[in-house]
């Protein structure tokens, strides 16, 4: 079987504000983009793994982590892992930036 990668343009790079979340919905997946202080863009599933967790878009961003706005879990924007003492993981998505556009790659 041949695997084909698809990519979807979801935002203009310049529209993303540093350390703020930008939520997008792709089919029925909720994804949030964060532009780090370094200018890199990361994409993760827009839902905290906390049992009562909800969207992450409004969380506080520090370095390569985002803190869940409702319950303060610290989540890595690199591998999606929740940091100790809490546990869990969110999905991460590959991001590509080209011609001023931000793409999600599948």
């Amino acid at each position: 079987m041949i695997q084909t990668a698809t990519r979807v343009a979801v935002a203009k790079y310049d529209d993303l504000a540093i350390r703020a979340g930008y939520a997008v919905k792709l089919e029925d997946q909720e994804i949030v983009l964060f532009k780090l202080t370094t200018g890199e863009v990361r994409a993760i599933e827009n839902r905290s793994p906390h049992p009562k967790g909800n969207r992450l878009a409004e969380g506080l961003v520090s370095g390569e982590y985002v803190f869940c706005p409702l319950y303060d879990w610290k989540i890595s924007l690199i591998d999606g892992k929740v940091q100790a003492p809490d546990k869990g993981q969110v999905k991460t998505f590959e991001v590509e930036i080209a011609d001023g556009n931000v793409y999600l790659v599948f």
Partner: peptide, 11 residues
């Protein structure tokens, strides 16, 4: 507003 996408282009 949350942006919804359906289309995709292949690479």
């Amino acid at each position: 507003k949350e942006n919804t996408f359906v289309g995709s282009d292949s690479k």
